[in-house]
Design a protein around this nucleic acid. Structure first.
Length: 723
DNA sequence: GTGCGAACTTAGAAAATTTGCA
DNA sequence: TGCAAATTTTCTAAGTTCGCAC
């Protein structure tokens, strides 16, 4: 390579001179893309936020924990990499467990008998039999229904009992009893209910496919048997009723179905900011005209003269009608959707029924590229079976294409995890149908690949940073050698940070910027593959992405250690967990637009707090009075009143504390998205161990989906786990 | 060695559902 | 019971990585 590199536009960029070796830095990575609460500037998507919100703003009134600068040593990485993570560094794939549970005896039992029994009795609908044809399927269906009835029996019994109880109450009331006769559950009944709950939980646990305990397939092989029903296609377009009219230049124009469908895509978005953007409007109009008939194209030449009002109103009415549907109507729709999920939403993967993540083909519509995307507004065309490639086992029942259609191709590639794929027309990329996150398959700066200019929004990562994205300060805010970052990252989220760096790093950055102008690459000799090659040479499996993941998890552990206090109440402990989670989200720059109802809901909460404060004051004064009366005349009745008042004060105080903690948490979370790091970056074992140590139910920090996804971690993590 | 594209993985917004309160 | 708010799920855009072809 010479000293110059030609960019995509043919312009030449000046190469920076080669740096001297920095041997002394080779043994550690300074994961110092971190921030102090005081310097963090937070904005959401630049194009979506009012200017007023873009100004520098501390994360929270001095309460958000600071994130430390970590010296991430090689052995720490190695230790972490030895833990269950995919090659890409996320925490979804698990090798065989390293630790034994305390209840090993139980496990042996499960493995020896229960497990085998489970395989037989819980073989999902179809498993390998799915390939046997319709007759077998019918008999299985009957069997499944029977099994479902058996499964539901205790539940039905319970419901019946509850109903009987209500009936009894009503009956008693009718018979003229004055007071409520709601029968209190006996101790035995309560115990039985508890036991039933535990049993159900255990059954669910047993049903779970403990894939992390099974042997792994040879390299590259993802499955041995895969069967599914193919993707679910969105319904065909239904033309508008005659009374919903489109106007052009003040006159009614009856559009052809193809043009009408695309017009409706636009009309449905009229209350969205997208439709005010020139790029969006121009792209839409260009693509819309392609769908028009010759006559329509001749007539409709100016988007400004188009009146979609009636179409928009119809859409709004439909949304409103859907919202106002009766409970019963909603239930019917829900059941119909459930049926679709049952039919298309599952596949059989190596003898196990697995949920498919996205079994629906994306419906046609207008492309909603994020940020200033040059292709926003373009028509996303309807996908036909002829566009779709199916992937499944040779010996499975091949999914039937919809009537009168055929698949583009049926292949049997067990080195990939997708079930179906198609190419989308806007960006020319591939879309896939894949399994759910809980299935078997599966620096804080991003690496930053080069992107096609003009094809996507102008976003960058580490390797694609340009000169204008950093500013060097010899001294800033009392710190030496500070690098100020300001650029748009993934999804056009602004990254703004001031980071003090080592003198050597500072000097090198200065060299990199020499003889360069705005628009020139900061690291012009660096690509993501070169960066990752270098990282891998330092340690097997290390990539920029792994680095980011490691940094996130170690930050969580560190923050939890610093912030947790075993003597806190549960609300305070949860606030502490959220703060630690938030610190990671800040580190990874996971932002969100503040919810539209944020201000209102905060005001509501504040009002509740104020009212509760008044109540507390009132309760306190009543307690004082009761105390006084009880002292003057210490009879039993007055003492009971005093006790009652005391409890009321206590209850009020607890509620007030809970609300105040909630308000703090909510305020701190205004612009931070916690779920991304929780789901994709944080080793769940850290959280599971923390819950065990702090005596916090896991349900408080992971919802059902998250617990499913991290079942492996829940299963094998002890309280003493260390990342 | 480099460019490209397939195959995932990460991401925030929007929609749907559940929860909590008056 | 109805409404608003909170939470969860769904959707799909936008990244990263790796292997292959040239």
């Amino acid at each position: 390579m010479g000293g110059e590199k030609q960019d995509k536009n043919g312009s030449r960029k000046t190469k920076t001179r080669r740096l001297e070796d920095d041997d002394d830095d080779n043994d550690q990575y300074s994961g110092n893309v971190t921030k102090s609460k005081k310097t963090l500037k937070k904005t959401s998507k630049v194009d979506k936020r009012p200017k007023s919100e873009e100004k520098e703003k501390p994360l929270k009134k001095g309460e958000t924990p600071e994130i430390e600068v970590f010296d991430i040593k090689k052995e720490n990485f190695e230790r972490a990499l030895g833990q269950p993570k995919s090659e890409d560094g996320d925490f979804q794939v698990w090798e065989k467990g390293k630790k034994k549970r305390k209840d090993d005896d139980f496990r042996v039992e499960v493995k020896r008998s229960g497990r085998k029994r489970r395989r037989e009795s819980e073989r999902p609908e179809g498993t390998s039999d799915l390939a046997e044809g319709h007759t077998a399927e019918k008999s299985r269906k009957v069997k499944r229904e029977e099994e479902e009835q058996v499964d539901q029996a205790p539940e039905m019994k319970r419901k019946k009992e509850a109903k009987d109880e209500i009936d009894m109450e009503a009956k008693t009331e009718n018979e003229g009893h004055a007071v409520s006769v709601k029968r209190k559950k006996t101790k035995e009944e309560l115990q039985a209910a508890k036991a039933l709950k535990t049993k159900k939980k255990e059954e669910e646990e047993q049903r779970r496919w403990r894939w992390w305990e099974e042997e792994k397939y040879p390299d590259g092989i993802k499955w041995k048997y895969l069967e599914h029903k193919g993707p679910y296609f969105p319904p065909e377009y239904q033309p508008l009723p005659d009374d919903v009219q489109f106007f052009y230049n003040g006159k009614v124009v009856k559009l052809s179905p193809a043009a009408e469908e695309v017009a409706l895509f636009f009309a449905q978005m009229l209350d969205h900011e997208y439709t005010t953007k020139d790029v969006f409007r121009n792209n839409f109009f260009k693509d819309w005209r392609k769908e028009m008939s010759h006559e329509e194209r001749q007539l409709i030449t100016d988007l400004e003269k188009c009146d979609f009002g009636a179409l928009f109103q119809m859409h709004k009415d439909k949304v409103e009608a859907r919202r106002n549907m009766s409970k019963e109507e909603k239930q019917i729709i829900k059941e119909a959707n459930q049926k679709i999920v049952e039919e298309f939403g599952y596949c059989v993967l190596d003898s196990h029924r697995e949920r498919i993540g996205n079994f629906k083909i994306e419906p046609p519509g207008l492309f909603r590229g994020r940020g200033e995307h040059p292709k926003q507004g373009m028509l996303k065309k309807r996908i036909r079976p002829e566009d779709v490639i199916i992937n499944c086992s040779k010996d499975s029942r091949i999914p039937e294409p919809p009537m009168g259609h055929q698949w583009k191709e049926v292949r049997h590639d067990n080195t990939v995890t997708w079930l179906a794929s198609w190419a989308e027309n806007v960006q020319g990329s591939c879309k896939y149908i894949m399994l759910n996150a809980n299935s078997k398959l599966k620096l804080a700066l991003r690496a930053g690949n080069e992107k096609e200019e003009g094809e996507t929004a102008d976003t960058v990562g580490c390797c694609s940073l340009r000169v204008e994205h950093i500013t060097l300060h010899e001294r800033l805010d009392g710190a030496q050698h500070v690098v100020e970052f300001d650029f748009l990252g993934k999804d056009c989220i602004r990254y703004y940070n001031k980071v003090p760096v080592a003198k050597k790093v500072f000097k090198n950055l200065k060299l990199f910027m020499e003889n360069k102008r705005e628009g020139d690459d900061l690291f012009d000799r660096l690509s993501t593959s070169e960066l990752n090659k270098h990282l891998s040479s330092l340690m097997l499996g290390l990539t920029a992405k792994v680095f980011r993941t490691f940094n996130a998890s170690i930050t969580l552990q560190q923050q939890l250690r610093e912030l947790s206090n075993a003597s806190d109440n549960q609300a305070q402990k949860l606030l502490c967990y959220n703060r630690a989670n938030r610190a990671v989200a800040v580190l990874c720059n996971h932002q969100r637009a503040p919810p539209k109802t944020f201000e209102q809901s905060m005001a509501n909460l504040q009002a509740k707090i104020d009212s509760r404060k008044e109540q507390l004051a009132q309760a306190k004064s009543e307690l004082k009075q009761a105390k006084k009366e009880a002292k003057e005349n210490p009879d039993k009745k007055l003492l009971t009143v005093e006790e009652k008042r005391r409890r009321a004060v206590q209850r009020c105080e607890e509620q007030l504390l809970r609300m105040e903690v909630q308000a703090t948490d909510r305020e701190e979370n205004k612009q931070i998205a916690l779920s991304t790091s929780k789901l994709n970056y944080l080793d769940p074992r850290i959280s599971v161990a923390w819950c065990k140590n702090m005596d916090v139910p896991l349900e408080k920090i992971y919802n059902k989906t998250q617990r499913d996804k991290f079942a492996w971690a829940v299963d094998m993590t002890e309280a003493d786990f260390e990342f």
